[in-house]
Structures are given as C-alpha cells and as structure tokens.
Amino acid sequence: MLPTTFEFRWDAGHMIFFGVFYAVVIAIFTSLVYVAVKSIIDVYRDMTARNEANASEHPEHPHEATNEAVIAKS
C-alpha cells in the first residue's frame, strides 16, 4: 500500500497500479469532502434562512413554519 512496505519497488508495475489506485481514492474522497462541506454549509444557510423567516413573520408555531418555508423556498 505505502512506498515504505517491503515489497514496494519504484518500477513500472507499482507506479501504474498504485498510481491508478490512489487517483481513484483521491477522486472518491474529494467528492465526499465536497459533499460533506456543501451539506454543512447548506444546513447552516438553511438554519439562518429559517431564523430570518421566523424573525420577519412572527408566526406562533415555529415548527410548521419551518417546513412550509423550506418547501416554499426550494
């Protein structure tokens, strides 16, 4: 797996195999990190948006409002 293991040699076979492997791994993880970060931002933005909606319309029941607001907005 890592260049430090005993079997690892800097030859063509290893370069290709681990090159492709780490490319795939990086591709997957960057996408996951992207999704995670984007989701957290969305959640945060969603929270602040909900708060402003609460603040502007003073509704009595905060919970249902949040749902309708969400549906309305998206």
Partner: peptide
C-alpha cells in the same frame, strides 16, 4: 433532518462522478 437531507441531495448531485 436537514443534514441528512442536504447530504442526500448533494450526493445525488455529483452521482455522475461516482
């Protein structure tokens, strides 16, 4: 739960990569 909802949506968004 907003976090899950957004994760689901965002994942669905870049599903082409996967």
């Amino acid at each position: 739960f907003p976090l899950f909802k957004y994760i689901g949506e965002n994942l669905h968004g870049i599903m082409a990569v996967f």
